[in-house]
Amino acid sequence: MKTELISTVFLSEKRKSTLLMLMDGPATIDQIKNSINGTTSAIMAQIKILLEQGLIEQKNDEYRLTHVGQIILKKIKPLIEALNVVEGNKEFWASRDLGAVPDPLLDRIGDLGEVLIHEPDLNHLFEPPRELLVSLKQTKNVCTFYSYFCPTCPNNYAELAKKEVNYNLILTRPVYERLRDEYTEQYNAIVESPTSHLYVCEENIMKPGAISVTDNLLLLSFFNKKGFFDHKKVISFEDSAREWGQDFFLHYKELAEQVT
């Protein structure tokens, strides 16, 4: 029975997608078909299997999870979501040093949802992704953590401060000192802004390359397992990813010292 249920859930994308959809509530065959892009006959074949396994039931024209289906899907959903994140970019995740991510957040890695892996060409290595720059022009709230120095970032920081965006910025001490000593105008704009808050994180704390959370975007970067920063970044526009990113940022905020 254990093997049958595992096979029922995982050996068909249509069955898996149908079960995940029904976690949000009952649905008709047409709604299921529109959601998972299959023909009626193909979906009905999978519905029949789910009915036989006792994972769903039919009431009038709608299908819904049974109590058994609800129990199983609540346990399996985080695994499915984590697999979807990792399987889509296996080589990237396998090469990252994720030691900076607290265990509770690793358990929620599926919250990142559909991600884009940004890999800049040689002409744009030291520039933030276009998606982030567009988001920064529109957002009213930003949380950013950097453990490396980005040459274009001081101007971005200062622009956010001048616009009085609700801005929280954490820098490692070497990055902070370079900003303070070499970019005085931009540094002053940050510390003088009533809506900007600057924090310093010590070097001995294990950390990612960067975290940026705006009103509609999460950006992450990690060092690779050799300890190098290769400029590859994760971008997600999903609400669950932004919540995950906020929690990741707060983890480092609790470890940092506030400057302003």
Rank of each mutant, 00 (worst) to 15 (best):
A82I: 02
E202K: 10
Y148H: 04
P102C: 15
F126K: 09
K59T: 14
G69T: 12
G25S: 09
P26Q: 06
C153A: 12
H124D: 08
F223V: 03
I109Q: 12
L19Q: 01
T214F: 05
H67W: 06
L65H: 03
P154D: 06
K253D: 01
P104M: 13
V142Q: 02
N84D: 13
L169T: 02
P174L: 04
E182P: 01
V175K: 02
N216K: 10
G54K: 03
S147M: 08
Q70M: 12
A27C: 08
V68N: 11
I205Q: 14
I43V: 10
I49R: 11
E257D: 03
A94Q: 15
G99S: 15
L83V: 05
V200P: 00
I205C: 09
V200T: 00
V200H: 00
K253H: 01
V191K: 01
L133K: 13
K253A: 00
I117G: 12
T18K: 01
T184F: 07
F223S: 02
R173E: 04
K137T: 13
L136I: 12
L50M: 15
F237E: 12
L51R: 07
C201N: 02
I56R: 01
L250G: 01
G209F: 03
P104F: 13
S196I: 01
I6V: 10
T8D: 06
H231N: 13
D239E: 15
N37W: 05
L55R: 02
D247Y: 01
H251F: 03
D30A: 08
E254A: 04
D24N: 11
A42K: 11
Y157R: 11
T152A: 14
I80Q: 08
H124C: 07
L51E: 15
N216C: 04
T139G: 04
Q138Y: 07
K140D: 09
E4D: 14
P120G: 10
V9H: 02
F10Y: 14
E254R: 04
N123Y: 12
G38H: 05
L73N: 06
K226A: 08
K14N: 06
R173Y: 11
L51W: 04
K163M: 14
I205S: 08
F223A: 03
N155A: 13
R15K: 04
L98D: 14
N60P: 02
R242V: 02
E243S: 05
V101A: 10
V234E: 01
L116W: 14
N166Q: 15
T39M: 04
Y157Q: 07
E87L: 06
V200S: 00
V85Q: 05
K232T: 08
H251Q: 05
M1I: 10
M206E: 14
Q138R: 12
E62V: 05
I72Q: 08
F223I: 05
I211R: 09
L5S: 07
N224T: 07
I72L: 15
L98H: 11
A45L: 07
E203M: 10
L50F: 05
Q246C: 05
H197C: 00
P128I: 06
V85M: 08
R130S: 08
D103M: 15
F248T: 00
